[in-house]
Design a protein around this nucleic acid. Structure first.
Lengths: 131, 131
DNA sequence: AATGATATTAGTAACGATTACTGTTTTTAA
DNA sequence: TTAAAAACAGTAATCGTTACTAATATCATT
């Protein structure tokens, strides 16, 4: 099944690259539809999965029951605001030593870890302080 | 709404305490049903949510799209085998300094983090080596 | 022990996110 | 230009979970 070019896939990838938040499939659908009103939600899901499978985008499972997608495939950490739900990149280096530490306590093979941080984002902190 | 005693809730809690894997709601349902065939799946979900809300059990979102539950409420890390999907406790101390590190790179307030490790568990390593 | 207020239940319907299906349209190599 | 197959739009189905409702169980008060 050789990959064939698709205008829909290009639009989805381009949209994701233009965002630094981390949209869900539905948000991608809503936005890409403004440019191509005929695009199908299934097409969005299929291409997001395909792009994630070939490593051109990253799928984020942040525990809110909805998948988020990120065009930045470099390993980096995420922060989720418990007030507004926004997802923000953290510009910190990967803490790989945590994997090694975990390995000492485990008889299998640990190949990686997933970490996300939660709390209150800057904007929500302001709002809360103003109240 | 004062909490009232419920035999169903007791059974669910007791079942969870007897397991050191981390069953899903459906697994809890299947098992508790052997003792009480009339119990409803909704009752299982409602009580798992209630028990998690009052802190008697822990809800785990491990990124596989299904919630897992753990009667061990002490903060500890989990390992997920990418071969067989099993979830295993890691006996390592909490790495709280990762939250502080992240805080330096962020202008909001970070209150916690979620980390899970993945790789190949001991049993699956054996099987893979034997092949 | 009987009463009554209400928390909880079983059973089922509804929900939201995602995937699968199907007949049609695009892509692309020959 | 043609033809194989990848991708599509549209829709139905699936899956985990939550919401609803009438009946039942719990429990403090009599």
């Amino acid at each position: 099944m050789a990959l064939k070019h698709s205008r829909q896939r290009d639009m989805i990838k381009a949209f994701l690259m233009g965002r630094k938040d981390h949209p869900t499939a539905d948000v991608v659908y809503m936005n890409v539809r403004q440019e191509n009103p005929n695009i199908s939600l299934g097409t969005v899901y299929r291409n997001l999965t395909l792009l994630a499978d070939i490593g051109e985008i990253q799928r984020l499972r942040l525990g809110d029951g909805v998948d988020h997608f990120d065009a930045d495939t470099s390993p980096h950490y995420h922060f989720i605001c418990t007030e507004c739900g926004s997802v923000i990149d953290l510009e910190m280096e990967s803490v790989e030593q945590i994997t090694e530490t975990a390995g000492k306590y485990f008889n299998g093979r640990i190949t990686g870890h997933v970490t996300y941080f939660y709390g209150t984002c800057g904007a929500c902190c302001k709002v809360l302080n103003a109240q």
